[in-house]
Design a protein around this nucleic acid. Structure first.
Lengths: 202, 202
DNA sequence: CAAGATAAGTTTCTCCTGTAAACATGGAGG
DNA sequence: CCTCCATGTTTACAGGAGAAACTTATCTTG
C-alpha cells in the first residue's frame, strides 16, 4: 500500500514488459539460456502469466530474434548511410556495425542465428531477417552500379559478404578471434581481404 | 567378445558407448538438444550411470565437440591433400570439405561452435579446435610460399578464410543459403569471391 | 583363496523447468 | 448493475539435471 506502484492485477502491458525483461537478460547473460519462469519472476508476475501472451517459449524467442534483426538492420543501415565516401568504406562501416552489434548483444545475436529462432516457423521473423539481408544486397547493388564492385553475379557477392560478416561476428563473440591467433585488427584485415575480391581493380 | 550379451552389470566400455550413442543422436536430431537421460536410456543403462564417466552434461558435450573437431580436421586435411593442382583448388577443396562436414553433421557442427562447447573450459577441446584451424593456416602458408596467395599478413588471410568458411557452413546448415536467395552453387561462387581477394593477380 | 577395496551400476531424492487446467479479478458493454 | 472475457494466479504434472546412498562385479593383496 505504501508502495509507489501497487501493481494492479492487470499489468497493462505485460507483453512488452516481458520482452524487455528478456532482452535485458539476454544483454546480461550473453548465452540466452534464460528460463521463461525467470523472465516472469523478474517481471514480477506468476510463472504462467507469459503464456497469455506467448503460446510457448519458442514464440517469445522468435519475437526476440525478430526484434534483434530489426535493430541489427537499423544499425547497419545507419552505419552505411552515414559513411560517406567510397563504396568500400560504406561496406566496411556496415560490416563493422554488424560485428559491433554482435559484440554488444552476444546473447541476442546468438539467439538470432540459433536453430531455436526458426525462420520457417514465423513469417515475421523471416521477413525481418530478409530485410536485414536486403540492406547488404542494396549496398552491393549500389556498388556494382557505381562501378566500384565487380560485375559478377550479385548473389555470389551477397553470399560471400554475408558469410564473411556473419562468420566474423560469430568468431568474435566466441572469442575465437584473439590477437594471439589472428593478430590485431583482425576484423578490418579480414574484411580487406574479402573486399579485394569484391572491389574492382587493385 | 561376442556382441550378444546378457547385459552384464558392468558394461565394459560404457564411456565409449555413451559417446557413440550421443553422436548417433546428434546425427539424427541435428539440433543436439538431447538429454543425458535419453542417452543413458538408449545405451541401456540407468540415467545416473553417465555421471560415473562425465562429471556433468557439459563435459560430455565438450568431448563430443572435441571429436567433432578431430573429424573435421581429418576431413579437411584429406580433402586438401588429395586435391592436386593449383593452390586455389586446394583451398576450395578444404573449404567444401568443411561445409560438407557441417551439412552431414549439423548437430555436431552446431555443438562444436556453440557456447556450450566452451574452449576455455577444456584444454583438449581447445587444442583440437586449434589443430583444425592449423590446417587452414598451413594451407595459406603454403600458398604464400608458392606465390599463389598474396603476401599480406597471414593472419588477415586466416581470419578472412576461417570466417568465410565457417560463415558459409552456418548459413548452409541453417538453410539460409537457398537458391531463391543467393542462386545456385552459392558456396562455390562465394568462395570464388573470397579467393579473388586471397590470390595474386587476376 | 578369502576378503576388502574400488570402480561402475542402480535407486531414490530434490530442485527446477515447461506447460496445461482450473480458478480469480477487474474493466468494458449491455 | 450484472455479466463476459482478457489477463492474471494457483495448482498439478511430466520430465531433466544432478547428488547421495546403496549394490555388485572386478581387482588387489595378505
Amino acid at each position: 500500500m505504501s508502495d509507489i506502484k501497487e501493481r494492479p492485477y492487470h499489468h497493462g502491458d505485460l507483453r512488452r514488459a516481458l520482452i524487455e525483461t528478456a532482452l535485458a537478460m539476454l544483454a546480461t547473460d550473453q548465452n540466452w539460456a534464460f528460463t521463461l519462469r525467470e523472465v516472469a519472476r523478474r517481471t514480477g508476475v506468476s510463472h504462467a502469466a507469459p503464456y497469455k501472451h506467448f503460446r510457448d517459449k519458442e514464440v517469445l524467442l522468435r519475437e526476440l530474434a525478430r526484434i534483434g534483426f530489426e535493430r541489427l538492420g537499423q544499425a547497419m543501415a545507419e552505419a552505411t548511410a552515414s559513411a560517406r565516401g567510397a563504396m568500400r568504406g560504406k561496406f566496411v562501416a556496415g560490416a563493422q556495425a554488424c560485428i559491433e552489434f554482435a559484440l554488444h548483444n552476444r546473447g541476442l545475436y546468438r539467439l538470432m542465428f540459433s536453430s531455436d529462432a526458426d525462420k520457417a516457423a514465423d513469417p515475421n521473423l523471416h521477413d525481418a531477417a530478409m530485410n536485414t539481408f536486403g540492406i547488404l544486397l542494396c549496398l552491393l547493388e549500389e556498388g556494382q552500379r557505381s562501378g566500384s564492385f565487380r560485375p559478377v553475379a550479385i548473389n555470389a557477392l551477397a553470399a560471400a559478404s554475408w558469410a564473411q560478416v556473419h562468420g566474423l561476428a560469430m568468431l568474435v563473440i566466441n572469442g575465437q578471434l584473439l590477437e594471439e591467433k589472428v593478430g590485431p585488427e583482425p576484423i578490418r584485415a579480414a574484411l580487406d581481404v574479402l573486399l579485394d575480391g569484391v572491389c574492382c581493380g587493385d
